[in-house]
Design a protein around this nucleic acid. Structure first.
Lengths: 365, 365
DNA sequence: TTGAAAGCGCTAACAG
DNA sequence: CTGTTAGCGCTTTCAA
């Protein structure tokens, strides 16, 4: 029996085989041919390595080769299926490239993110894929400048130099607003997520723009909310419905926001979609089994992760900086029951094809 | 400006400060006092370290100290919220203990799991938390024996020596069956998950036992299914409903299984809960917004992960083997609409308090 | 075809 | 109080 033994070193194998460590190293690394090691010697070394259960120490190898084979991944909440899906695709990509993933959870806390990034750098990760908390990017810019390539996913920063992969937030928001406009809605309440983050602000701006385009003044667009959570959705929707009883539709910026809004609507005695239309950014798994299936814009989370993985892989393999700074992944509009039918008394209005839509660039390839 | 610079070594700092590397090392590791380094020297070293942006190379430190500070985590599918939640808790626990997590995704493939475990061992992880694919454990037993402590979560192995953290599968299954029995059901179809895995087989056995206890012969319990997926749920439920039109209730072993069964029921023209009761193991987030809220047994996923983290932490900190081999986390029964009301013509039957229930042991502390 | 030796960056005995 | 020395386990010139 040759149970693998973590304490057996290359030296032990070499000794057992009666060769030097350098020979053993060469024999085991397939450099046999290249380094002109005799077949018999190579076999002997391999045989002894097997017998002793030799497992090369990757820490030592990394130290010497200056290549850790590690990729750092930082997300605000691993338990969130959205980030979990991204982590999965990135992990898969890394493993295909022979790298392992060091996963860290920032818990939506910027300071923690800073610490974690430093820690990962100390472990000499070769690259960093980060879904940042989103308020500050100096630590990421610094890491990138210091030679650890950084790719940012989901949330990002309006300026700066980091390659960023996001969904087409603007296109998606615009599409949802257009949909509501088609149905005759004009007073649309916005249940936003976390202000200051790029996805939130992009969606908000796009929504306002789309409304402004049909003459709805910005003051006539009630907005509330302070996070992508159900709680924020509930509280802000409740407030919105109380303050502005004239809203006929709600646009929630996340599914938790939408579920919160659903609760608030129910408590306010407004049934969806009859007394209130509801649309949301992000789809919910098994949405078809909901009591009120939600009209939504689905992000292609896997593609988000894959794109990040590809951008990182290219950066790592070629050593060249990324081709672009922004990679925008298209979203998918799904009309379902929650947005209801045309508002009574509304003149039908056909959807004007959005200029953005055709711009939504896919990932390379 | 002192941008952190990954290429600055301890030697550089020492040179700049005009001391030897050992002095520099001691000054920076807080061993100043213990090693009687003069305060001024220590300060000078620290100052230069800061100025140069020195970041200690953890790979080198790990190699020398023989402590990688790494914990390996292997799950069948990171994108699955269940495993993501476990990964999160374990990650949190590891980070609290100053360790980083190497995350790997086995993709439900046993061979891949074997490879990944070997890879993680090569990276000298100090411990391994694994949600195994579940068919073979020799590689895990080997790792454990070779000195890398292994903790198994969710799926596990009936025999072997690995400490295992699971939900109370038997108690949960028994509870659901009891519930259906109370409502008067006697012909209950089982939409199982992946046969051969411990959770599946434990649930199946408990369900059969509970039915046998009221005189339902094992041949009268139709069972179908080959995975925890929606597809398996759909196909097996369809088959079950076709072959045994007399079933009045279905017990799905996972939420995807349940959603599949829901589709199959709809296609078979049986509405839930009126023409067919449905219960399932595992809860679904936002279950209250489903058209037919599902009666379920919810696993305490976070506690599953926390327990695994604790068991691992204790093992790592004390060096002692775990106190027990099985850690069973209680589940929570939630009655909702999908199981319907009492079956017409069924004599009411009060629930016999299960012997298992009181046995469901919590995690230590 | 193989070995000796140097060194990756760090820590820790052991001497001063 | 601080420097010297010897590695941790591996790869890789450079010689032989």
């Amino acid at each position: 029996m040759s149970a693998s033994n973590l304490t057996v070193t290359l030296g032990d194998v070499a000794a057992a085989a009666g060769v030097s460590v350098s020979t053993a190293s060469r024999a085991l690394n397939g450099n046999a041919k290249a380094c002109r090691i005799s077949a018999t010697t190579a076999d002997r070394v391999r045989e002894h390595a097997r017998r002793l259960g030799f497992r090369p120490n990757l820490l030592a190898r990394s130290l010497q080769s200056r290549r850790s084979g590690l990729l750092g991944v930082v997300v605000p909440d691993v338990a969130n299926p959205f980030f979990a899906a991204i982590a999965k695709e990135v992990t898969r990509g890394a493993e295909e490239a022979g790298r392992s993933v060091l996963l860290a959870d920032s818990g939506e806390c910027n300071e923690r993110e800073v610490t974690l990034v430093a820690e990962l750098q100390a472990r000499r990760v070769e690259g960093l894929v980060v879904c940042p908390v989103g308020v500050d990017s100096t630590h990421l810019e610094a890491a990138n400048a210091a030679g650890t390539p950084v790719v940012v996913v989901d949330r990002g920063f309006r300026d700066g130099s980091l390659p960023t992969v996001t969904s087409d937030h603007r296109g998606g928001a615009e599409r949802l607003i257009e949909h509501l406009l088609e149905l005759g809605h004009r007073t649309i309440g916005i249940v936003q997520g976390r202000p200051g983050t790029l996805p939130n602000d992009d969606r908000l701006r796009a929504a306002r723009d789309a409304l402004a385009a049909v003459g709805v003044s910005i003051d006539d667009v009630p907005v509330a909310g302070n996070g992508f959570t159900e709680r924020s959705g509930y509280e802000s929707a409740a407030r919105l419905l109380a303050d502005r009883p004239d809203v006929t539709a709600l646009f929630a910026f996340s599914t938790p926001n939408a579920f919160g809004a659903l609760r608030a609507a129910a408590e306010a005695g407004r049934s969806v979609p009859n007394d209130l239309a509801l649309v949301c950014f992000d789809d919910v798994p098994h949405g078809e089994f909901l009591r009120v299936p939600l009209t939504a814009v689905a992000q292609d989370v896997r593609r988000l992760g894959q794109t990040a993985a590809e951008v990182m892989a290219e950066r790592l393999e070629t050593g060249r900086p990324p081709r672009r700074r922004r990679y925008t992944v298209p979203v998918r509009f799904i009309a379902r029951a929650s947005s209801g039918g045309p508002l009574p008394g509304a003149e039908p209005r056909s959807r004007r094809r959005s200029s953005r839509e055709s711009l939504a660039a896919g990932a390379p390839r």
